[in-house]
Write a protein that binds this DNA or RNA. Structure first.
Lengths: 336, 336
DNA sequence: CTGTTAGCGCGTTCAA
DNA sequence: TTGAACGCGCTAACAG
């Protein structure tokens, strides 16, 4: 495949392999003249050091892995963008793995990565992940690990998230100030960190504003068809609900679909707000009010922290739990 | 890091390293009893072979690379999904690289990959890519390469695309049948294969239907703000345009934005159709008619073909140029 | 059926 | 300032 290597360069230059190696790595113990000769030939022949050989030698792969539930979701796409930018600048490579919200798949992937293939790993756990041995095994192997967005609260691992609770509080507050009296919270999965925190913010706002009705949570799934069925019967049953707070974008889309179908007017009959990073939310009918997460920055920060751990730099206490605020974009779907 | 290796297993079992290696790889020249012993211990100690060592030895990385212009785009996200599915099933790893539509970056990335880090590469070229030496260098190094979506027409490389010309023809035809007389084509970049082919389909339809006015192409950029400026002055100038055919989703979004801004009614004043894989297009105001590309299947097929090349299987002539049809979803944005 | 030996290509001793 | 030699961990050729 690639038979131009150090040995070949060395022969061509009448030098030893080690001299060539050192010259290319700009070692101080090599004469400038020699360096120039070596580098010139290396460029001329388009020499690229064999990454497996150096990885093997140095126990360093120059590669990180990103494990996410899905990629067809603007939030995770934007995270990838941030990750890739930081990694590319540092000369690192990025492996991507999709769990499809499946704990078994997540476990297999992590198993696969526990062998030096990557120098570090960042993960947003799947919503079916209930046990954490596969993650603990990582910590135990002392392989650098960082959580982002969806974390395992119980594990002592650096994490980068948004201010889910606060943002959810503000979103709920926004609905309340728009005159809503009975707000339903659409949740994706009960034991996901983000669901729990977002729901907490929602509940706090309800309490703070002393709403007569109790909280109203609708547990949804990852399947669009199922969600629509759930929502249809929900709207049948709960006639006096006047607002929907969707924990994730997908659920807002499902809500819009069912509302159009049942001829429920947004924002007249029901107001809708959702966590979402979809730029096109502004083009929806009606434009969807969103809580926009700093996805790109989350990816960027998570990667930066991961590199700090990889490079064995000490993490400041503030760097072990980084929170980057989301911001609310008010649009017609929550207008009075 | 990971100091449990073949040697360690061998010592523990009083076997030679090669026997252990063979046992784990289920070699036929190893007794069942021995295999069982070895495997049991391997599992017990959680042994994972060092990937760099085997890659070095076998000149095989079990890794492929995907090079795309951007990830924050449903088309490419869905492609990634297809790629990842096929790769994961085959036990392969997937490296992702983003060019951000920058030829220089694309060149750097390909340079980086010309050294055995990956067993193969699939790419959708950036829209600023005008010279192809960096790609040719790949072919010359006889590293497996596959194009998808955006190809280099001039290169003899297996390619997986959609039926851009046909789909564009049908989309234009759909507009014509909806009564449009003056259709503008929004193009992303003149020398991109998909732009050229889509424009061709558009022109053919105009000719076929014998439209009095000539074709009308608006060259756009990758920058939203610029595009909006371009579109604003376009609408000022061309008062009798009654339809927009956007070659890529981004341009349809820009069109919607400007139309809302200038109070141009869709579909009353102007009808809009676009290539787009955005599920939420149905929720737009008005719902956007789209040409949906088989993105997942493109990713899947491209990966399947890439693996065939990697595995040195002969490609059938029909496999060297695979076309998977798109389909049109008619919505209100093109209603009479 | 199993062990011995020899690299894969690189970086890093140690010696000169 | 340079070279020779070794070993990272694994697989494959060659014995036995």
């Amino acid at each position: 495949m690639d038979n131009i290597n150090l040995k070949r360069l060395a022969e061509e230059l009448n030098l030893s392999v080690s001299t060539v190696s050192r010259a290319l790595r700009d070692s101080h113990e090599i004469g400038q003249e020699t360096k120039d000769r070596v580098k010139a030939l290396a460029v001329k022949l388009g020499f690229q050091p064999n990454p497996h050989a150096s990885s093997l030698r140095q126990s360093k792969s120059k590669t990180i892995a990103v494990v996410i539930p899905e990629i067809e979701n603007n939030f995770f796409s934007q995270v990838m963008n941030g990750v890739e930018d930081v990694a590319q600048k540092k000369g690192y490579h990025v492996l991507i793995y999709l769990t499809h919200e499946d704990q078994a798949r997540e476990k297999d992937i992590l198993q696969l990565l526990r062998n030096g293939r990557v120098d570090g790993l960042m993960i947003s756990v799947s919503n079916t992940t209930t046990s954490f041995e596969h993650l603990q095994a990582y910590i135990d192997a002392s392989t650098p690990l960082v959580f982002f967005d969806r974390v395992c609260e119980s594990m002592e691992v650096p994490r980068i998230t948004t201010d889910d609770t606060d943002a959810a509080f503000k979103a709920t507050e926004h609905l309340l100030r728009s005159g809503c009296k009975k707000i339903a919270f659409l949740s994706m999965s009960g034991n996901l960190s983000i669901s729990i925190r977002r729901k907490l913010g929602y509940k706090r706002a309800l309490e703070m504003y002393g709403l007569p009705d109790p909280e109203l949570t609708v547990e949804c799934t990852t399947n669009d068809e199922e969600n629509r069925t759930i929502l249809r019967s929900f709207f049948e049953k709960e006639k006096n609900v006047d607002a929907i707070f969707a924990a994730v974008e997908k659920l807002a889309v499902n809500t819009y679909q069912v509302c159009h179908e049942l001829n429920i007017k947004i924002p007249g009959d029901i107001k809708v707000i959702s966590f979402s990073n979809l730029a096109a939310a502004a083009l929806f009918d009606p434009p969807l009010s969103t809580i926009v997460q700093p996805a790109y920055d989350i990816g960027k920060e998570a990667t930066t922290i991961l590199f700090k751990i990889i490079d064995k730099k000490m993490l400041l206490p503030t760097e072990r739990k980084i929170t980057i605020p989301s911001h609310i974009v008010e649009r017609r779907s929550t207008a009075r």
